[in-house]
């Protein structure tokens, strides 16, 4: 005789798996629409982004003109939705050239920000211990959520979080971590209660937007060095 209770359990597992898959897919679609807007507008947004890239391509900020040199702070880069270490490579190269120590979050592609926590904690701890200072995190849209979660538990290794493009459902800002916000969407900016820098340009290109880079360099320059306790002694 077949075991009814075992079959029931199997059915429950299958249904749970189906539900969780639907949840994941739904969440992914929601994030994608939230980040990039409705698909109907994608061709227009893509053309606008290409035009913006071409127009900005000769901006002197990329060559470090009028940019104040850095103090070697470790800076962990957290990609936004569908971004990864590769999409943040130009920013990493630029930060390195202006005197910081950018660190990749070891994320191939950010499909779900909840999967970022573990690699982020590892990257953060490694960078802070290697350089002997608290790190700064620069996080993009949904990556901000992961950065805030990680900052809340890794306060001893993070001094500041720079959010470039906010997303919804943000966790509470950790008390001992300073938050700086750069945003392109005036709608989101209006809803934000803290200090915010507003820039023009496509949200998807914030990582290479010259106005964002200029603000990033100013914010980073003003952040004081915080040595880890082992270095202070």
């Amino acid at each position: 005789m077949p075991d009814k209770s075992a079959r029931g359990g199997e059915r429950r597992t299958q249904s749970h798996f189906r539900r969780s898959s639907f949840d994941k897919a739904g969440r992914f679609i929601g994030e994608t629409l939230g980040t990039f807007g409705l698909p109907f507008f994608w061709p227009y947004a893509s053309m606008r982004a290409v035009a913006e890239l071409i127009l900005n391509s000769a901006d002197p900020v990329y060559r470090g003109h009028d940019i104040r040199y850095g103090d070697g702070k470790p800076v962990v880069l957290v990609p936004g939705h569908l971004g990864g270490d590769v999409t943040l490579a130009p920013l990493a190269i630029w930060l390195d050239a202006i005197g910081y120590r950018p660190v990749k979050a070891q994320v191939t592609i950010n499909l779900d920000d909840r999967a970022l926590d573990e690699p982020l904690v590892t990257a953060l701890r490694d960078a802070a211990r290697r350089i002997g200072r608290k790190t700064v995190m620069i996080a993009f849209d949904t990556g901000v959520r992961a950065a805030m979660r990680v900052a809340a538990i890794e306060g001893e290794h993070v001094s500041d979080l720079i959010a470039v493009g906010l997303s919804d459902h943000l966790p509470r800002v950790p008390a001992d971590v300073r938050l700086h916000v750069i945003e392109t969407s005036r709608k989101v900016a209006a809803a934000w209660r803290g200090d915010i820098h507003i820039v023009d340009g496509a949200r998807t290109l914030l990582a290479v937007n010259p106005a964002v880079l200029k603000i990033l360099s100013e914010i980073l320059r003003e952040i004081p060095i915080t040595l880890l306790p082992a270095q202070q002694s």
């Binding site: 040199y69 850095g70 103090d71 070697g72 005197g99 350089i131 002997g132 200072r133 060095i225 040595l227 270095q231």
Partner: peptide, 10 residues
């Protein structure tokens, strides 16, 4: 220390 060297360089 590294932080002093970095700040001197800056």
């Amino acid at each position: 220390p590294l932080h002093a060297a970095d700040l001197q360089f800056q």
